[in-house]
Simulated assay, not measured.
Amino acid sequence: MLFDRFKSRWALGWLAAAVCVSVLLAIVLLDRLPMKREPAAPAVHLAPPDSASTERAPIDSTRSPESVPSAAPAPDGLPVVDYDPAPAGFPPDRDTLDTTPLTEGLSPTRNIPAYDAPGGRPLAYLAPTINGVELITPVVERRVGWVAVLLPSANRRLAWLPPGGWTTMPLRDQLVVERRPHRLTWFRDGRAMHSWEVSLGMPGQATPLGRTFILGRTPPPEAVYGGVDIYAFGAVPDDPSAVPASLRGAHIGLHSWHNDDTLGEDVTNGCIRLTRSAQQQILDEVPPGTSVVVVDALPTPPATSR
């Protein structure tokens, strides 16, 4: 009996020892074998990555909001843009053939320097009026506090203005002139309202391509204009020396004629002629400051009327 008890105790002891050794061996093996880990959570840019992730998005503590370029003081004797050709040196309008409507106009509240770039050189002043007419010029770009507008009395040129000294207003309308089909289309809020056949500039005095705007309204100087007021544009002839001496210094205009015999032809000194009823409708409906773009043709032609 004692032997049987001792035998049983001896067997149980060996069994317990074997279990302990097995557990120890398992711990050692697990420690040496590579453990299968759950994949780390991906890094997120808008919040810190999960604590299980082994990769963290770098934090850039050196970045700060872009500052507005300062405006250099205007030197003494800086010219004021008026009805005569604007001073040289202003940058080109690189999107001059873009027919996207310009929906914001800018009006100076005092003489403000116009620059060739944000923080660049002041080249001239923009005044609240030109020849007594309020100046409203379309905004084409904004950059770090500065705005670019279509330059009056120039073709396909921009002026950069610093903050202050001007107000803005919405522009709903646009005039698009197509040279090849001799067509003018009036758009409002991006929708074609009306289209008319027009006469355009003759060879050597072609109606200038690109974006411009309605500068102001003036009475017809002669009976040949059909007795309806004229809209002067911000654009001028591309070759001022090619126009008759009596028109030197004049701007490109939109006007009617005493007859409609030449509609659809290239016969003018660069201006755009249309019927008296069409001219009167534009005068009644389309305000100064409205953008005008002259292109060769639009991809999808609107319907035309006279």
Rank of each mutant, 00 (worst) to 15 (best):
A17Y: 07
A18N: 10
S22R: 12
L24G: 15
A26E: 08
K36V: 14
P48A: 14
E55A: 07
E66A: 15
V68G: 07
A72E: 13
A74P: 04
L78D: 03
P79A: 11
I112E: 00
A117F: 07
G119M: 06
P128Q: 06
T129H: 08
I136Y: 02
V139L: 12
R142F: 05
V144F: 15
G145C: 06
L151I: 10
L151W: 04
L161Y: 05
G164H: 01
M169C: 10
V176Y: 00
V177I: 15
V177F: 04
R179N: 05
P181F: 09
R183W: 03
G190A: 07
H194M: 11
S195R: 08
G201S: 04
G204S: 07
F213N: 04
A223P: 08
G227V: 11
G227H: 10
V236H: 02
D238W: 04
D239F: 11
P244W: 10
A250Q: 15
G253Y: 03
H255F: 07
S256P: 07
S256M: 09
G264F: 01
E265A: 13
Q281W: 13
L283D: 00
P287Q: 10
P287C: 12
P288M: 01
V292I: 15
V292G: 02
V292W: 05
A297S: 15
L298I: 11
P299C: 09
P302V: 00
P302Q: 08
T304L: 07
R306W: 13
R306H: 09
